[in-house]
Design a protein around this nucleic acid. Structure first.
Length: 494
RNA sequence: GGCAUCAUGGCCGAGUGGCUAGGCUCAGCUCUGCAAAAGCUGCUACAGCGGUUCGAAUCCGCUUGAUGCCUCCA
């Protein structure tokens, strides 16, 4: 059987070129993808969730197309400084100091939180989830190599990347479309003295101050690696010197990803990544999310409803659906009304899916199901356009409801395609879970509700509307909604 | 201040040089014992000002605003 990817060329918006390009893997049928993971020094940010969700869908779709995908997403557990000044403190070390626990306790706590949240949102685990502290040796080797090439220098036990020297032969700023001259002119004065030759230079290795507890031996000092280096080390180790896709949040474009390119170019002499993808920001109520202003919500608070920015709790699937209704390259505004609208739409989608099993087939179809299916693929092939895909799924919802009304008809073969395609895109690709269907007690529940439906039918036949309405209203109050259709009554659980 | 991205109907959010997004809301109708659900119908937008073009919301310029980065953040 020919794999699906052969008939589904994917266009990816490459941040490097600023254009959509056809994805051509380095090795046919294989994709290497790296996504910058979280720094585990506090609870995972909801914006983080959106970014990782975008790449979760990319991962899912590539896999569905039959690619063998190696998806690497790191955990940053050292080296991410509070700021770029020489006194900048490691974020994890700082948290450890404030809470009076071991740095690795901080790492453990928030790594567990990260995994918990992502599980609730039904993320697929990456193929490899490496940590910065597990790859100190690899990072030291890269620093040695860059030093040998004359593109880094040692000062007081720290090693810095020499951006101006690098810029003589390569171009620093190709990803973020900046040039070094502009950077020099616009550099703000940092407080305090610096070991760096130029403010644009960035640390490859930092010497640890005596009180610094996170430290490893190196040829230059007891210290710790620079933040940008870990991604170069781990992506090279697991995906090679050149790989297909590198993703991350828009805010990492500069300087983080720019530095990754420079490090890899310096070390290996060629570009590390063919396709750079950047997910756009999540804002809330039109403004940047910030703890300090209260314009902030923790992922978990969506499930509990315990946050003043929302009026009720929302399931992870609804929140996921809400985010996927926007394209990954657009800014998305997280609002209560937006979530409410998405919840209604999501429920309508799921009810249509649930009713698929009751559809009666006919000799012929009044819909071109193959053409519809093709449109779904085309939406995803066009830079993973989930909002367009969802629009097509709602076309199917309308059609399914018309089938129930028997104003349209469908053949047995086409119904199978419809069912499969809905399942593929809703569950496998978008990663949405049908909550009501997943309930363990659904068999017992439906048995009991079926009984009440029959009693109500009898009451209605006897024109005992007081009783029939009582059954309907009290079930509704219990969260069970009856739906009268042409072929009898069904129900859904809210 | 510099760089980048963006600005769509009541709301959210796609897309395109000339032709349909989709969701939510709203109004009318059908169905119903009454509802709900569902179906049908309606609401026709593209920040402002110039320019290119036979034709632009879509391309270019300016203005205004938003978001991101430049300083920790996905």
């Amino acid at each position: 059987m020919t794999p699906l990817y052969q008939n589904n060329p994917i266009k990816i918006y490459n941040s490097l070129s600023g254009e959509k390009e056809i994805l051509k893997p380095i090795n046919e049928g294989h994709i290497g993808m790296y996504v910058c993971g979280p720094t585990v020094y506090s609870n995972v940010h909801l914006g983080n969730v959106r970014t990782f969700m975008s790449f979760d869908v990319v991962f899912r779709y590539l896999k569905h197309l039959g690619y063998k995908v190696r998806f690497v997403r790191n955990i940053t557990d050292a080296g991410h400084l509070e700021n770029d000044a020489d006194q900048g403190e490691d974020r994890i070390a700082k948290k450890a100091r404030l809470e009076q626990i071991e740095p690795m306790e901080v790492v453990q706590r928030y790594t567990v939180d990260f995994h918990n949240i992502l599980n609730k949102f039904n993320f697929l685990p990456p193929s490899i989830e490496p940590t910065a502290t597990g790859h100190i040796i690899e990072q030291i080797e890269i620093i040695k190599s860059i030093l040998e090439k004359g593109l880094a220098y040692v000062v007081n036990g720290s090693v810095y990347f020499d951006v101006l020297e690098y810029n003589k032969t390569k171009k620093y700023g190709i990803l973020s479309k900046r040039n070094v001259e502009d950077l020099i002119h616009n550099t703000r004065e940092l407080d305090g003295q610096s070991d760096k030759k130029n403010p644009q230079d960035f640390a490859l290795w930092k010497k640890a101050e005596p009180q610094h507890i996170m430290r490893w031996p190196s040829p230059w000092s007891d210290g710790f690696p620079g933040w940008h280096l870990e991604c170069t080390a781990m992506s090279t180790k697991y995906l090679g010197e050149q790989f297909d896709i590198h993703g991350g949040g828009m805010d990492l474009k500069f300087p983080h990803h720019e530095c990754e390119i420079a490090q890899a170019e310096a070390c290996n002499g060629h570009a590390p990544v063919n396709y750079w993808m950047h997910a756009n920001m999540l804002i809330m109520n039109g403004k940047k999310m910030a703890k300090s202003t209260g314009n902030y919500i923790l992922p978990n608070e969506i499930f509990t409803g315990d946050n003043k920015n929302i009026t009720k709790s929302f399931s992870a699937s609804v929140a996921r659906f809400f985010m996927l209704q926007a394209h990954y390259r657009s800014i998305l505004d997280f609002t209560n009304s937006g979530l409410l609208a998405s919840e209604k739409g999501f429920n309508r989608l799921m009810e249509a899916v649930n009713s698929l099993k009751d559809i009666k087939t006919d000799q012929n179809s009044t819909i071109n199901i193959k053409s519809w299916q093709q449109k779904c693929y085309e939406a995803m092939n066009d830079d993973f356009n989930t909002p367009i895909l969802i629009a097509h799924l709602f076309d199917a919802v309308k059609f399914i409801n018309q089938l129930k009304e028997t104003t349209e008809s469908i053949s047995n073969e086409d119904l199978n395609i419809l069912q499969q395609t809905m399942h593929i895109f809703i569950n496998d690709v978008l990663g949405l879970e049908n909550v009501s269907e997943a309930s363990n007690d659904s068999d017992k529940l439906s048995g009991a509700v079926e009984l009440l439906i029959r009693l109500r039918q009898e009451a209605r036949a006897n024109k005992d509307f007081a009783l029939s309405d009582k059954i309907r209203d009290e079930l509704a109050a219990a969260g069970i909604q009856l739906q009268d259709g042409k072929d009898g009554t069904t129900f859904s659980v809210n």
